[in-house]
Write a protein that binds this DNA or RNA. Structure first.
Length: 479
RNA sequence: GCCCUCAUGGUCAAGCGGUUAAGACGUCGCCCUCUCACGGCGGAAUCUGGGGUUCGAUUCCCCAUGAGGGUACCA
């Protein structure tokens, strides 16, 4: 059997759209699953869109996600160069061959010759006499267009969408070679896929309409066309419930933005793998190695799918919880901005509270923010039915416990909790009844990322005692 | 306008002629618990509509509708 070769052929736009990353992932998984080769090719034939440093973004993303390519501009390979702008002469050669064989023609129309009302390109350049063409070539700029045969059917097969039959009369004479002598995507991709011996093409569904034209080109050149797999489009949900192609207004759409927001590369990859592809089993958390093992074309879904940030967040929380404490500490470093200083100082400890509670690293600052924003809060927080706490009962607990806390020299979570639990035991009250009031007094808020001991430890002795005194003072006035 | 494609809960999806129509996220309730989170248990919620074919259609065919894409010297 022929060795599988897939490719990822992004254009250097300056960022890696998540849909693009998914295509790369699928191409990578497919190649690896069949022990094949994964090729990276840069499609930079649109000079107007040149972005400085854009190819670096592509390399960095592939590196960060572990989608290692076997051939590419940065590492070379038997089919170099892997950058289309460096292959200019190749396309020109094949375009001329097609003209000679009657499958393409020179077109001298100006860009705006076709009026806006007509759809598709129609002109008579194809039937120009050879002498006239020769004459015009000397002085006029031109493009080379594919000559689509009339009244024929093109039949093609896609691994995902099945058989497709198209009437050639609905196809346009598309431009193959632009007036700047650079090929269009539609042409370059056909030439390169063949020349680079690509056996399986995985690309977005938006190219399915162009597939018949590619098929015609392969036929004209006498080449065998690769197996194709068109994958669904990733959509975003609009506020009104409708969907449209995932874009900035839906949220973060590039890999870099997602990472910046605190999503782990592994989680992003795992989640996007499952958007438009299914392993057909109940499990959803897979390592890259497991995905390679499971990935086949029959799991590819035809219908478009909506990117769900909530589910990605859930997936991310799974990966965060699987991190070792050391990894979590290391990774969280750059997300500590906005966290109160006494949380940063004790981050080694606070991080253990955070790890099980956050879904993205971006939430860290917010999680502990209230500890810094301490102000007089609504005293009703001290009331708690389940623990039989009234304002008065809470006040008593605080007054009883305060001297013990004040005396405590080793301000540790264990010691703090011990004081409260001994007190509860001695009084014959519920543990919650003794821990609730100090926790509320310390945090100034009902919901906290840890229990009483943890909150008091984080805030520190001096500040905690100050807060306890303030609460006692306020409660005494109230009761 | 023309062409192509798609259509299972709010979302991701399994299903490939006979099922109580999986599972996950989200959501709701309960349990656990000093709060939250985690975890456990349970609930609500889906086959776009209409025609066929068939003993029987979510599943096959046709039409309609809706959605997406193409119709670029962009990819």
């Amino acid at each position: 059997m022929e060795k599988v070769r897939t490719r990822f052929a992004p254009s250097p736009t300056g960022y890696m759209h998540i849909g693009n990353l998914r295509t790369a992932l699928y191409a990578y998984l497919y190649a690896r699953h069949y022990g094949g080769t994964f090729v990276l090719r840069i499609e930079d034939t649109d000079q107007k869109r040149f972005v400085e440093g854009a190819t670096e973004v592509i390399y960095e993303t592939l590196k960060a996600t572990g989608l290692r390519h076997d051939e590419g501009p940065d590492i070379g390979g038997p089919y170099a160069p892997y950058v289309q702008s460096e292959r200019k002469a190749i396309y020109e050669e094949y375009a001329k061959k097609l003209v000679e064989s009657g499958h393409a023609y020179y077109c001298f129309c100006k860009k705006d010759d076709t009026d806006e009302e007509s759809y598709g390109h129609h002109c008579d350049c194809a039937s120009l006499a050879p002498e006239i063409v020769k004459e015009k070539l000397k002085s006029e700029s031109y493009v080379i267009r594919q000559k689509i045969p009339r009244g024929q059917k093109v039949q093609l097969h896609d691994e995902v969408f099945g058989d497709i039959v198209v009437d050639t009369d609905t196809l346009d004479d598309q431009v193959l070679l632009k007036s700047d002598k650079l090929p269009t995507y539609n042409f370059a991709n056909v030439i390169d896929d063949h020349l680079m011996n690509i056996t399986h093409v995985i690309r977005g569904k938006e190219y399915i309409s162009s597939a018949p034209k590619y098929e015609l080109l392969y036929e004209a050149l006498g080449w065998k066309s690769p197996v194709t797999m068109h994958v669904s489009t990733i959509m975003g949900q609009n506020p009104d419930g409708s969907v449209s192609k995932l874009s900035k207004r839906h949220g973060s759409v590039s890999f870099a933005q997602l990472v910046e927001a605190g999503y782990l590369p592994e989680a992003i990859l795992n989640y996007t793998a499952l958007l438009g592809w299914s392993p057909k089993m109940e499990r959803e958390v897979f390592s890259l190695a497991e995905l390679i093992e499971l990935f086949t074309a029959d799991g590819l879904v035809k219908a478009d799918c909506v990117f769900d940030y909530k589910k990605l967040a859930w997936m991310n929380s799974i990966y965060i919880s699987k991190l070792s404490h050391e990894e979590f500490l290391e990774y969280s470093k750059k997300f500590l901005e906005g966290a109160p200083s006494f949380v940063k100082d004790k981050w080694e400890f606070a991080s253990s509270l955070a790890q099980g509670r956050i879904e993205t690293f971006g939430e860290i600052g917010e999680l502990f923010k209230f500890l810094e924003d301490y102000k007089d809060f609504d005293l009703s927080l001290f009331e708690n039915k389940k623990n039989k706490l009234t304002l008065e009962a809470s006040l008593n607990v605080l007054k009883d416990l305060y001297p013990q806390f004040e005396k405590l020299e080793d301000w540790s979570v264990e010691n703090l909790n011990a004081i409260a639990s001994n007190y509860a035991e001695g009084r014959g009250i519920k543990l919650g009844a003794s821990m609730w009031p100090p926790r509320i007094a310390t945090a100034g808020q009902m919901v906290t990322p840890g229990g009483m001991g943890e909150m008091m430890y984080l805030v520190g002795k001096e500040e905690t005692l100050k807060r306890l005194r303030r609460s006692i003072e306020r409660l005494e006035k109230e009761v």
